[in-house]
Design a protein around this nucleic acid. Structure first.
Length: 276
DNA sequence: CTTATCCCCTGCCGGC
DNA sequence: TGCCGGCAGGGGATAA
């Protein structure tokens, strides 16, 4: 689920669970959690620390600890943080990391596909880490203006959808957000970014923050569940709705592949060429 | 430098 | 029921 809205929800939840609390013990159950640094030797050093703040930058979660260190986390495709009451039983199958708090609760990181990452870095150096150094402005905290979006579009031959998902240009928009934003702005995802008119770029820029706020509000109502999981409900308008009628014009929602990613859109509302 | 493709890993779902 | 291909809300490495 990890796109800006879901990561923002995680940040808010984690604040309630962690800020001001002391981590009695950190356990890394899967070395792949920090594969790039050789398997997470940070469990012991983190134990005993107190959590001071939780921040979000694009799709990254930053858990600030005392002694000037920060746990940096990325959920990738299937990562998820959960708060559970104290259990003597061993953690469930997909739990990769546990923060046992001194109040007896646990914050667990679970991740079916094991792409997610959590590692420790000095707080002052977080923004200059290779993973974060080139991140573009956060799509929610520092919205992209129509003017800047026009400049970005002029610099590339790629499609508007690929541009929106480029984390070096705009931080936080992923495959679902891109599809939903372009549907609401009535722009075909395969349109070359450079071909958009000023009015079309304006429409996209003005759609992004409200869409993100809407997605945060809608998905905050219940525990975060990935599409495809038991109990999941598709709250999106076009994403994974191939063949269903567009709520605006009843044209069946179509699916294509752009840059290797499934792309959903309404051929009626989002004509591929010309104005529409 | 830009852009496209492949790959990491595991699970689920539909078709045969 | 079992096997198999396709698909999956990420991004990094590599190739062209």
């Amino acid at each position: 689920v990890p796109e800006l809205p879901e990561v923002e929800i995680h940040a808010r939840n984690l604040r309630g669970w962690l800020v001001g609390k002391r981590i009695a013990e950190a356990q890394v159950l899967d070395p792949m959690l920090d594969a790039e640094n050789g398997g997470a030797g940070w469990a012991a050093p983190v134990s005993g620390r107190r959590v001071q703040a939780v921040r979000r930058d694009a799709k990254y979660l930053l858990i600030d600890l005392d002694e000037a260190d920060t746990l940096v986390a990325h959920l990738r495709m299937t990562g998820r943080f959960r708060s559970v009451g104290y259990r003597a039983a061993p953690p469930e199958k997909w739990v990769r990391m546990v923060l046992a708090l001194e109040d007896g609760t646990e914050v667990q990181f679970e991740d079916r596909r094991r792409f997610g990452r959590v590692w420790l870095a000095p707080t002052a150096a977080v923004r200059s880490l290779p993973e974060l150094a080139e991140l573009g402005p956060d799509a929610l905290e520092a919205p992209t203006s129509a003017g800047r979006l026009t400049e970005l579009a002029a610099m590339t031959s790629r499609s508007i959808k690929v541009l929106l998902m480029d984390q070096r240009l705009i931080g936080g928009i992923g495959n679902i957000c891109a599809a939903e934003i372009l549907y609401r702005a009535r722009i075909a995802p395969d349109r070359p970014a450079r071909s958009l008119t000023a009015e079309e770029v304006e429409r996209i820029a003005q759609t992004i923050p409200p869409y993100l706020e809407w997605a945060i509000a809608v998905q905050s109502r219940r525990e975060l569940i990935y599409l495809g999981e038991k109990g999941a409900e598709n709250v999106f308008t076009v994403y994974r709705r191939e063949g269903e009628p567009c709520p605006e014009c009843a044209t069946p929602i179509a699916r294509s592949v752009i840059a290797g990613r499934g792309t959903y859109y309404c051929p009626g509302c989002q004509p591929s060429r010309g104005e529409g």
